[in-house]
Design a protein around this nucleic acid. Sequence first.
DNA 1: TAAATCGTTGGCGTTACACAAACCAGTTAC
DNA 2: GTAACTGGTTTGTGTAACGCCAACGATTTA
Lengths: 160, 160
Amino acid sequence: MASLPVLNQPPRRSGALLDNLARRMRLHAESVLEPLGLRPRHLVALTVLRDRDGSTQQALASTLMMDRATVVGLLNDLEADALIERRRSPEDRRRHIVQLTDRGARRLAKAEFALAAVEDEVLSALDTGQRATLYELLLLAASGTAQECGPAAIASDSPC
Amino acid sequence: MASLPVLNQPPRRSGALLDNLARRMRLHAESVLEPLGLRPRHLVALTVLRDRDGSTQQALASTLMMDRATVVGLLNDLEADALIERRRSPEDRRRHIVQLTDRGARRLAKAEFALAAVEDEVLSALDTGQRATLYELLLLAASGTAQECGPAAIASDSPC
DNA sequence: TAAATCGTTGGCGTTACACAAACCAGTTAC
DNA sequence: GTAACTGGTTTGTGTAACGCCAACGATTTA
């Protein structure tokens, strides 16, 4: 006998939509970010560093799920523009403690302000509430993947 | 006088998180999709074609916000595997009407099923309800850019 | 002293585009 | 019916943003 049609319906996967939406956003963002001397990829790091200030590069790579080497290049860009600082950890002098500078915080704020227009365009179908929900879900999904950092720590300012 | 602090708070932008999450998803998806002869990029097209069957390539490029030439390459891949069909439009024989074949639909379903594990991992911090919400928001954002397709049509099975 | 760790650099390979130019088949305008 | 336009196609060039690997210096741990 045939199985129930409703059970045959494949689950809708978000991956493809996520990809597409991200590409659109990045495409528009590039031109907006360019006068600020930033690239889309830099924003991820800056955003994370605003919340998890004083992170190790290793920890940063882990939460971003990126290769260490990639993170190094990213931070090199940001440090060259004095948007972040690398201090050596007193406890373990192999480690670099990465911190957002005031300049970096200001630049990030400026970038986010400038990106409002881009988001308005790409997310034009979403109202304010829906955009807020989307942001929360994305933040939750992004932060939750680091095992040490439970969901409870997301909304709070805990350093994880 | 200084402006109110709360007003100075920059708006949190979803772009960076979107980017990061999409990259993670794509990274894991590649290996899962490979035995199916698909690449992440193909899923977007297949997904759109399932809902907007019989679309013109031009329309497809428009909803995907991609270059025509890029779409051609994408469809070439899919057609080579008989996952889609290109028919000439009777009204305007310049146009190609793109349609998902049964094989394509089955392949897509299989892919989505296989991607469940990936989504489970990347979106592990989200429960079922939250994932559904995320999917709806993404779909809304993706479809909303095409003006003909209003928000009311999202939840329904309307072809837009 | 030896092994492991953190960051760093460099190189090689890949995906996935954008953009432009040129082309054919078919359509529309004059 | 010639000219202009349009939809799709091909090819080619360029770019962003990675991943992965290997090797290295500085430092810490066994």
